[in-house]
Simulated scan of single mutants.
Amino acid sequence: MIPPRSVLLGAALAAALALGSGATFLVMQGPAAEAADEALPMPPSLPRLSQGPEYERCLGLLRGDPDEALAQAEAWEANGGGEGARHCAALALLGMGEAPRAAERLEGLARVSRAGSGARAAVFAQAVQAWMLAGEAGRAFAAATMGLTLAPADVDLLLDRAVALGTLGRYAEALEDVDRVIALAPSRAEAWVFRAAAQRRLDRVDQAASDVDRALALAPDNAEALLERGIIRQLKGDVAGAREDWEKAVSLAPDSPTADLALQNLALNEAGPQRR
C-alpha cells in the first residue's frame, strides 16, 4: 500500500532518534525500508496529474491490489494513458514494495509533468517518501529540494527534507528546515519532536528537552516524542523516567520502528553500563 506521511515520518524519525553523545544505544538500519514490506494504509487523497474514470479506477486499485493496478496502468499507458498511467504505475510499484523503481519514476514524472506546480510538488513529495523507503536519504533530500522550488512554503516537504537531512547526519541544516516548519505551522507536534532530536544531536540537551516537552503538550500520546524524551532523560541520568517513556512508546505503537528502537533501548538499559 501507499504509506501516508505519518507512517513514513515515524519510520524515518526512528532512524534519526538514535541515542548518541557517548552511549551506544542501537540505531535501526533502514527502518523505512522495513516499513515498505508491510501493508500500510493508503492516504485519503492523492495528487492528480490527470482526470477521467480510467485514472480513478487505477488509483482505486492501489488500496487493495497494487499488482492489478500496475497491470492496468501498463495496459493503459500502451494505449496512450500518458501521465495518469505513469503516475498510477509508479504508485503501484511503491505499493508492491519496489521503492527504488517507484522513486525513480515518481521523480522523473514530477520533473516533466505538465500539471500545475502544486500537483508536481506533491508528486515530488511522493518521490521523497519512496526514496526514504528505499534507504536513499540523499536522493530524498534532492527530490524534496526540487519540490520546494515549486512550493517553497510546503510544510510537509520542508519536514520531509529535514528528516532526510537528519538521516544524513546534517543536523544544523535539518534544524533550519524544521524551524521554518514551526514558524509556518507551530502546532505540528512531529516538527517539535524532530527539532528536539536535532538539538540533542547538536549537544543542546536542555533545548531538546524543552522542544520535546512542547511536542508532548501538543500530542501527549505521540510515540516518537516519548522515544525522544526517553533518550533525553537517559542522557540526564533519569533512568526510571527513560524506561517509563520507552515502555509507553511501545504500548502506543507496538508494531512500529519506533517501538523496535524503544525495545532495544530498554534491553540495553537493563543490561547496564557495561553493555552500552
Score class of each variant (00 low, 15 high):
Glu74His: 05
Pro44Arg: 14
Gly108Pro: 08
Ala240Leu: 08
Gln29Lys: 14
Arg139Tyr: 05
Ala142Gly: 11
Ala89Trp: 04
Thr258Leu: 05
Ala223Thr: 13
Gly64Lys: 02
Asp221Met: 01
Ala174Trp: 05
Ala119Cys: 06
Ser251Asp: 14
Ser187Gly: 12
Ser210Lys: 15
Leu59Lys: 00
Trp76Lys: 06
Ser113Tyr: 03
Val212Gln: 06
Met96Arg: 15
Ala137Pro: 07
Gln199His: 13
Gln264Leu: 14
Ala103Arg: 04
Leu252Phe: 08
Ala90His: 09
Pro273Arg: 14
Leu94Ser: 02
Thr167His: 07
Ala115Glu: 07
Leu59Glu: 08
Val163Ala: 15
Gly237Trp: 12
Ala143Leu: 09
Gln51Gly: 08
Ala249Asp: 03
Leu159Thr: 12
Arg200Gly: 13
Ala39Asn: 02
Val181Leu: 03
Gly81Cys: 05
Glu176Val: 12
Leu175Thr: 07
Trp246Tyr: 03
Leu168Pro: 09
Val205Leu: 13
Gly147Pro: 04
Ala140Ser: 14
Ser187Pro: 02
Arg114Val: 04
Glu54Cys: 06
Gly30Pro: 05
Gly82Val: 09
Ala75Ser: 13
Ala143Gly: 07
Trp76Ala: 14
Arg114Asp: 04
Trp246Val: 00
Glu83Phe: 06
Leu17Cys: 14
Leu157Pro: 01
Met42Ala: 14
Asp179Arg: 13
Gln207Cys: 07
Thr149Pro: 07
Thr149Leu: 00
Ala110Leu: 00
Gly116Val: 06
Pro257Phe: 12
His87Glu: 04
Leu184Trp: 08
Ala189Phe: 11
Val178Cys: 12
Met1Leu: 11
Gly81Val: 03
Leu93Tyr: 07
Pro3His: 05
Ala242Lys: 08
Arg233Met: 05
Lys236Trp: 05
Asp255Ala: 14
Leu184Ser: 13
Arg114Ala: 04
Leu165Tyr: 02
Cys58Tyr: 00
Leu40Ala: 10
Asp255Glu: 13
Met28Asn: 14
Ala259Thr: 08
Pro31Gln: 04
Arg275Gly: 04
Asp238Phe: 09
Leu268Arg: 01
Gln207Leu: 15
Leu157Ile: 10
Asp245Cys: 05
Met28Leu: 15
Pro47Asp: 05
Gly30Trp: 10
Val239Pro: 00
Ala137Arg: 05
Gln129Ser: 12
Ala39Cys: 00
Ala259Met: 03
Arg214Glu: 11
Gln72Ser: 10
Gly22Glu: 11
Arg161Met: 09
Val123His: 05
Ala240Glu: 10
Arg276Gly: 13
Gly82Phe: 03
Arg161Glu: 07
Ala174Cys: 08
Leu266Ala: 07
